[in-house]
Amino acid sequence: MEKLAKIEKTIEVVKVDNKEITIINNFLDSDEINAFYEYVSDLSFVKKEKDDEYDEYPIFSVDFIPEEFINDTFIGIKIKEYLQSINMFDQFLLYRSSINMSHYGDVEFPHYDCPIDRKDITVLLYVNNKWDYKWGGETLFYESHDSKAAVLPKPGRLVIFPGNIEHLGGVPTRICKASRFSLALKFAYIK
């Protein structure tokens, strides 16, 4: 069987509220996407993930031990190596690693991953091995309670953004029969 040509990473930076959101397309190759998707599809999810303490509509999620995830999984190691290559890793400490699963009919709310005065970052990896743009599910980023950027959950796409940007993980549209999976790594700024 002939192997497909490797697709190069492309990096796009958008600004919301003068803060950079870095979007890395093709962060994973197709074999990595499929392997991680198969792994995630077999996990046992619990309906507990809330956008804030007042959220009455939790979605399904699964948590990992942060240190083990970043050091012992091929996805964690690849993200760590990338953050090291751009001189970001040593400035942050991973304190939470989880995968969220949402479906049509779920509810998500705009939220922050850290207080406004913090310099923490969030790294999102879209896990699905296929995604049609008609299925929606975009991550929306807000400035002054108005949407300013939308990022489609394309397979293998990595997004790095300050945790103090208000955002929302969009739910799939009615025509989507697939679960929407996203890996969320939350890093506290320590320097």
Rank of each mutant, 00 (worst) to 15 (best):
M1E: 09
K3S: 00
L4F: 01
L4P: 00
A5G: 13
A5V: 12
I7F: 09
I7R: 15
I7K: 15
E8Y: 02
E12Q: 15
K15F: 14
V16Y: 00
D17S: 15
K19E: 13
T22Y: 09
T22E: 14
I23Q: 06
I24V: 15
N26G: 08
F27Y: 03
L28D: 00
E32Q: 13
A35G: 02
F36Q: 08
V40Y: 11
V40F: 12
S41K: 13
S44K: 13
F45Q: 07
E49H: 01
D51H: 08
E53K: 07
Y54S: 05
Y54T: 11
E56D: 08
Y57M: 06
P58Q: 05
I59P: 07
F64E: 01
E67I: 12
F69V: 04
I70N: 11
N71A: 04
I75V: 14
G76K: 03
I77P: 01
I79H: 02
I79M: 07
K80R: 13
L83M: 14
Q84L: 13
S85G: 06
S85D: 08
N87C: 12
M88L: 15
F89E: 12
Q91F: 03
L94P: 10
L94D: 04
I99Q: 09
M101A: 11
S102Y: 01
G105M: 06
G105Y: 09
V107Y: 10
V107T: 12
E108P: 00
F109S: 09
P110D: 11
P115V: 05
I116H: 11
T122H: 02
V123G: 05
V123D: 03
L124M: 14
Y126W: 07
N129M: 02
K130L: 08
W131R: 05
K134V: 05
T139V: 06
L140W: 09
F141L: 02
H145K: 13
H145S: 14
S147I: 15
K148A: 12
A149I: 04
V151G: 01
L152A: 04
P153G: 01
P153I: 10
G163S: 08
N164P: 08
N164I: 05
L168A: 03
L168D: 05
L168F: 00
G170F: 05
P172G: 10
T173L: 00
R174C: 04
R174E: 12
C176N: 05
A178C: 03
S179K: 05
F181K: 02
S182K: 08
S182Y: 06
A188H: 03
Y189C: 12
Y189K: 11
